[in-house]
Amino acid sequence: MLRLAGVTVRYGGTAALDGVDLTVAPGERVALLGASGAGKSTLLAVANGSVAPTAGAVRVLGGSPADRRVRARVGTVHQSLELVGRLRVVHNVNAGLLADWSAARAAWSLVRPQGLPEVLAALERVGLADRAFERTERLSGGQRQRVALARLLVQRPDLVLADEPASALDPVLADRALTLLGETAAARGGALVAALHDPALVRRHCDRVVGLAGGRVVLDRPVAGVSAADLGGLYGAVP
């Protein structure tokens, strides 16, 4: 599914990732843990091709993340969502179908939304069907997070990357969001990699924990074997 080998990402002098090796197999549900600034978002950005590593190799679904056909099979919920506030909710959601659409269809969809049944079904699953035609900027933070989730649902990716996908959701919705992400990955025999902060969510929805600190992998084991002390060390001891 995903293989990083010796991946380093530098921004100026600081290394956001420092020689990361990580392999994710189909069917795995990986929780990415680490203190703020540990490199979680950077790792996910390397995996979906939006950041090219300074050094090291990245293979995604057997190809390069720069390849558009590979990208079409990788879905991401970004930490800052990256929705366009001025667009209606439907349009932000149907943007998840853009990989399959011609330029003309993409343009026409702004006038007359295309793929509406799929889009409305995805919005129904995240509980926002009644807001479909509203401007996205009128939605609350948690509602926007669910719009980003719906965009990923219509994309039907094999590899699901999620950067704190539940940070603005109440406990019930957070649980539901992770269920949806897990189902999406499982539906096509894919994998889920999610940066999470909430240990309860990690235990319920993931089977493997990868801990990052200062851009390095410092912990990698099945979720059952992760103790409270491990988590404490992860958040307490940033080198």
Partner: peptide, 18 residues
């Protein structure tokens, strides 16, 4: 936002339009 659309496989024109 445009980079996010490129990351999900959108064509350049599509990413620009949305």
């Amino acid at each position: 936002p445009r980079a996010a659309l490129a990351a999900l496989g959108a064509r350049p024109v599509g990413a620009w339009l949305y």
